[in-house]
Design a protein around this nucleic acid. Structure first.
Lengths: 147, 147
DNA sequence: TATTTTATCTGGAATCATTCCGGACTTCTA
DNA sequence: TAGAAGTCCGGAATGATTCCAGATAAAATA
């Protein structure tokens, strides 16, 4: 999770401008990062800070940030994509009932050098997810079994 | 990777009918499974075997199979979703240049019981992916660097 | 075998997150 | 302060997937 200043720094280094719209989105990413917000939520929240912000700009900014390694995008189908501010290797625990996404820290488990030697594949990026049910949704489920 | 007979068996057990359309799709899944085919390829290939097959049916069948654990669906955004016939835990190596998907067998690396104890999250399904470049695309890249 | 029931199939229309586009607006540089 | 480059905006376009209602086919029943 980068700090606001670190992100601003990185944008400047990349020759990108730090506009009010982008600042608003940066702040939302920091405030709501743990929720793994999608474009819709980011748009809604950032609009409170920069009133003229458009949805197109929100999408463009998310893409720009993603391209420059400020965030990662978790792409889904049918549902909104989600933004990930935690760039360390970890597993996302995704609740299939409420859609909540939690980070679970792990130690890297695959010997990538060995893998590359065997397969010729070099890794630039990873996406590790467990799907299932979070504590709350599991309990709701149990309760409902004996109604 | 289930055999044709095993899949047919499983469908019957679930009270699903084994129609010519479904048979055609099953055969394609077995023949082209290693390519992790998307709906488009499956439709194109299965149509050769069952000439009247429609795209809607292809989608419906993929969903039905996925729901009953015959295959898994790898969902992407913007691009076609892909089908996975290898149901064992493994990492998918996804080439960002050519889109090829390779299976890489691993031994389960996260102690799920421990994770559940700590987080309350129970896992029903996983998706583990490394993005990067396959051997072929890496070499193409090198060659092009000094044109 | 004829009839009823149920599942499945089909083509076309609808969906919806995301991308694309042309013109307007800022910010930087000289 | 003019010109250039980067950004922003709204609305239209995109495209994989889903939805729908009527047609078909397979299983169940008689």
């Amino acid at each position: 999770m980068m700090t606001k200043d670190a992100i601003i720094q990185k944008l400047k280094e990349s020759g990108l401008r730090v506009t009010p719209q982008r600042l608003a989105i940066i702040e939302v990413l920091i405030e709501k990062g743990h929720l793994h917000p999608g474009a819709g939520l980011i748009y809604k929240e950032a609009r409170k800070k920069s009133r003229s912000l458009s949805l197109s700009t929100t999408y463009a900014t998310i893409n720009e940030f993603s391209r420059h390694g400020v965030i990662k995008t978790l792409q889904f189908d049918g549902v909104e994509n989600r933004c990930e501010s935690n760039l360390d290797e970890h597993i996302n625990l995704i609740c299939e009932r409420c859609g909540k996404i939690m980070d679970y820290k792990i130690r890297p488990s695959v010997d990538q050098k060995d893998m590359t030697r065997r397969t010729g594949f070099v890794v630039t990026n990873s996406r590790l997810e467990y799907y299932g049910y979070c504590r709350d949704c599991r309990q709701d489920k149990k309760r409902r079994q004996v109604p």
